[in-house]
Amino acid sequence: MRYAMAIDTKKCVGCSDCVVACQTENNVPIGYCRDWIVEVNDGTYPQLEMEIRSERCNHCDNSPCVRCCPTGASHIVEGGIVLVTANECIGCGACISSCPYDARYPHPDGHVDKCTFCFHRVGKGQQPACVEVCPTNCMYFGDLDDPKSEVSEILKIRKYKTLIPQAGTEPQVYYLI
């Protein structure tokens, strides 16, 4: 099993609903976020192009954050989901430094926190909270090893990219372009 997410930049309006939904679902303290919105504008008025991306941990196949963790708090579970076990984490910050996407943040309680792909939901067959809330329905989540999953299907028919592929992390969040 290999969980992955595909996000359609052609539909995302950057509303940040995924950000608040994640905060409430996962009790992310105010002032912190597990996901965030990037807006990229290119060109000169009125020849303009815009790309909006909802970003989060890429649950990289080749995850430097897991490798550099001295305690094993950062680890990979079923489906390739990268997790942090709070009471194994010493808060050394190594994983934060190691993530090219800055997807991790120091939780005010001391440990490091990040997107879990809503592990607690997907295990029960639910969609991640951000996927479920997105008003433009622009996020697809599922098992890449299952050719019939929504995310496999959409990646078959659409052009896509990942973020900073040069960093060699093999990200598993795909952006449909």
Binding site: K10, V13, C15, M50, I52, P135, T136, N137
Partner: peptide, 27 residues
């Protein structure tokens, strides 16, 4: 917003008249 997105999915063309490059204009 939901239906606009659904329409984009179905290939509807969107024409936006706006002096500002709005998000909708970008789509």
């Amino acid at each position: 917003v939901q239906e606009m997105s659904a329409a984009i999915d179905k290939g509807a063309s969107i024409i936006t008249v706006d002096p500002r490059f709005s998000v909708a204009a970008g789509k």
